[in-house]
Amino acid sequence: MNISFQGIEGSFHHEVAVGYFGQAHEWLGRDHFGEVFDDMALGRAEYGVVAIENSNVGTIVGNLDHFDRADVHIVAEVYLSVQQCLLIHPDSTLEDITEVQSHPMALDQCRAYLRERPKWTRVEVTDTAGAAKWIIENDAKHVGAVGSALAAEVYGINVAAHSIQQDATNQTRFWVIAKSGQPPQSSRAMEYSALKATVSFETSHETGALADALQAVKSNGWNLTKIESRPVPDVPWRYRFFCDMELEPTVNVDEIESSLHALEQAKAMQLSRVLGVYRVYAF
């Protein structure tokens, strides 16, 4: 089975993919999130893994926009406790380091640790694991990387410091996506903590229109956990709303779609879409 994700082997995306799918798969590491959605849409991979939100930094809003151009569905959500490490060349010591590379989000999560080391230049790169790989490939003894312990294992680099993120509760939530809308058979025996749905919709540009839509969500017994607005492409100053909701265990996609259709008929919302009804896991 082909699994697409942003980054390379040893990245946090790869860690989530291994935790959810297991080891025996073909990994397709991509430079950009959009390529993962393209892999789904074009049939190059059965499943993809994309980060959607970090507890410190917030939502990766661009990944909401990708649902506009790719007919894919969310089939699972995974919470990963992010433990950032300082990775250095096996022949280096901390005294040798003058530069630290990583993904901008990882650098931001470790800003307090890095602030205490003002002589280290921070360099943003596209991937945490890619920074670790680059150090080994280029024998860069003066460069450190912020990344995972898995990246250290994959590329044979040393962990000089563990858990350097400033928030011990730092978590990232990831979506597992698929064109089919069905989770892999192997995941069905895994323990999960909740059932959720993500829907998108627009409203009329009238006073109270969003309030009416949210009242309808409440009336259906859906527990709203997050709402985000994004600009509608090619329509200036019009917005689409994305809602995450916790559901009762017996609710299914057909019930959600039927309820949204009824809300459209009642003029409470427009152009609604169910992006997925899925189980939530934590690693």
Rank of each mutant, 00 (worst) to 15 (best):
S186G: 08
V57Y: 07
T169F: 02
N252I: 05
L86V: 13
W27M: 09
Y239E: 14
V123G: 01
L247V: 07
P104A: 09
P236Y: 01
S102P: 10
V253Q: 09
L87R: 00
L87I: 12
A211T: 10
G34W: 12
D234M: 09
H261A: 14
A262F: 03
P184M: 06
A112W: 04
T59P: 09
E99L: 15
S4V: 02
R240V: 09
M190T: 05
F67A: 07
A145W: 08
Q6I: 08
V18D: 07
E255A: 15
E124F: 10
C85T: 13
D68Y: 09
A216H: 03
H66T: 03
R188D: 12
Q270P: 00
L260M: 15
A51I: 05
S180L: 09
P90C: 02
Q165N: 15
G58D: 03
Q215G: 12
A282I: 06
T169D: 10
H205C: 05
Q270L: 14
G34Y: 09
E202M: 13
V277N: 04
I74G: 00
L64C: 05
Y20W: 14
T172V: 11
F174L: 09
G10C: 07
A266W: 04
H66K: 07
L28Q: 06
V49C: 03
Y192H: 15
S259K: 10
I88A: 06
P118S: 11
P231E: 10
L80Q: 13
G29E: 00
E77D: 10
M269F: 13
S258G: 03
Y281A: 09
W175R: 00
K119N: 15
S4L: 02
V154T: 10
T128Q: 06
G221L: 04
N63Q: 06
W237P: 00
D68H: 11
A152E: 11
A17N: 02
N170R: 01
A209W: 02
A24M: 01
E257K: 15
H73P: 02
E206T: 15
N63P: 02
F242T: 05
W27K: 05
A45R: 04
S163M: 11
P183M: 04
T250V: 08
D38R: 11
V18R: 04
Q109P: 00
F5R: 00
V123M: 10
V235K: 10
P233K: 06
E53S: 04
T126A: 11
K179W: 11
D31P: 01
H14Y: 05
Q83S: 12
L195S: 08
V49T: 04
V82I: 15
Q101H: 08
Y281W: 08
G144F: 12
E124A: 13
E257Y: 03
V199S: 12
G22Y: 04
V199W: 05
E191H: 14
P236T: 04
P90Y: 01
F241M: 12
I164R: 03
L247S: 01
R188W: 05
V274Y: 01
S186K: 05
E15R: 01
M269C: 15
K141C: 08
T128S: 12
A131M: 00
R188Y: 07
G7S: 00
